[in-house]
Simulated scan of single mutants.
Amino acid sequence: MLVPRVTNPFPGIPLIESPLFPALQGTMGLTPEEEKVAADLHERGYAVIDFPDPEIGARIDRVKANLGPRFTGVDLTDPQSNKTGGDRRVQDAWKFDEDVREIAANQPMLDLLSKLYGRRAFPFQTLNFPVGTQQEAHTDAVHFSSLPERFMCGVWLAMEDIGPDAGPLFYLPGSHRWPLLTNSMIGRRGYGSTLASAQQPFEEGWRALREAYGATEEPFIARKGQALIWTANLLHGGCYQRDQTLTRWSQVTHYYFDDCIYYTPAFSDEAVGRLDLRNLVAIQDGLPRPNTFLGEVIQQPKQEAKKKLSARSIIRRFRLSA
């Protein structure tokens, strides 16, 4: 007897975040290994894999050699020096480092993410770190979001073995299912505002959710070449670095998915259609990825029109082009 394919009535929800995931899982064309990744993302909001590149060890070594001198204020070669006092990251090194670009644009990773989300994935940003961030718990969804929601994810690659004293990454399993915090939820206006930290206005809300759900942090004690995939709303951060002489090399790649509006929620007011839109280029091919809604391109509004917007002008603000 043939089993009928399940029709997905919610194409605007990533497959691995859908409430229908158990019914849809068999239609996603996943291998047994990929099914485990999908189930972990659905239940926990993250999944651990071995990075799918046979050359990853050599790539990592070249990236560290190339980027190491760019971190000023710190001697990464001295095993006794404090590694936490200088520069902590290089953003978008894919623009000049071929190995960073190849890691971000890894085709097996793109294929996997596309299966998991139900839309074609593309990388748009890289961050390279020689030490841990020691950041408070936060979600990427206040920095990078999409309409429809949640079509964004991150992949964190361990570029060395990372122990508990090196300030490992941590995450709160299951927090991806909590409410997505927006400016309207916390009672502030975001559009046109300035912030020293896009995360700071939302920290009280995240702390309240952690207390309400009784969530606890789990560290990612990683070995070189392991990668962590996490969903847009998973709370994560960096543990306190107990040994300041240690490095904690890593690369983060952020991915969006096709046919979405891409914007920054910390500087947006969604309720009245005021979005801080992003102008993106896909790392794998260098081509623009325009903001689209159901296949139609959304034009960036003219600067002089921004102050005249109201709830009734949402359609005019995002004029559709054929």
Rank of each mutant, 00 (worst) to 15 (best):
T182P: 04
S175P: 00
G225I: 12
G214V: 12
F170E: 05
L228D: 10
S193A: 12
L234P: 02
F202D: 13
A196M: 13
D243K: 06
W230S: 01
I186Q: 05
I229T: 04
H176S: 02
R189Y: 09
T216P: 01
G238N: 04
L172I: 08
R189W: 14
A232M: 01
L181R: 05
L195W: 11
G174F: 00
W178T: 01
L246K: 13
L180V: 13
A196K: 15
Y171C: 05
A227C: 09
L234G: 02
R248W: 07
G192V: 03
I186C: 12
R177N: 04
T194Q: 15
Q244Y: 11
A198V: 09
R210L: 07
L195M: 10
E217F: 06
G163F: 05
D161I: 07
P173Q: 02
S175A: 02
L234E: 00
G237W: 01
G238E: 00
L246E: 11
L209G: 03
K224F: 04
Y191P: 02
N183T: 07
K224T: 03
G174K: 04
Q200R: 14
Q244L: 10
G192A: 09
D243P: 05
W230H: 09
G237R: 02
G192E: 11
A215M: 14
T231S: 06
L209F: 14
T194V: 11
N233S: 04
E218H: 01
G174Q: 00
L235W: 12
G237Y: 04
L246I: 05
E160T: 09
R223V: 09
E204G: 11
L246P: 00
D243S: 01
L209V: 09
Y213G: 08
E217L: 13
H236V: 00
L209K: 08
H236F: 04
N233F: 03
T194N: 12
E160W: 07
G225C: 06
W178E: 01
S184F: 09
G192F: 15
N183F: 09
Q226T: 14
G205Y: 07
S184E: 15
P219C: 07
S197M: 05
T216K: 11
L246Y: 06
E211H: 03
R242L: 14
A166M: 08
A166N: 06
Y240T: 06
C239A: 11
W206Q: 06
A196Y: 13
Y213D: 08
D165R: 11
D161T: 11
F202P: 14
E160C: 09
P201D: 07
L181F: 09
N183V: 05
R248T: 08
R188G: 12
G237M: 01
T182E: 11
Y213P: 02
R207V: 02
A227S: 15
L172Q: 03
G187P: 11
Y213M: 12
P219A: 13
W178L: 00
L181A: 15
R189L: 14
G163L: 06
Q244H: 14
Y240Q: 09
I162F: 04
Y191S: 08
E211L: 03
L180T: 04
S193W: 01
E217Q: 11
Y191H: 14
P173M: 00
I221E: 11
E160Y: 07
P219V: 12
T216R: 10
A198L: 15
A232Q: 05
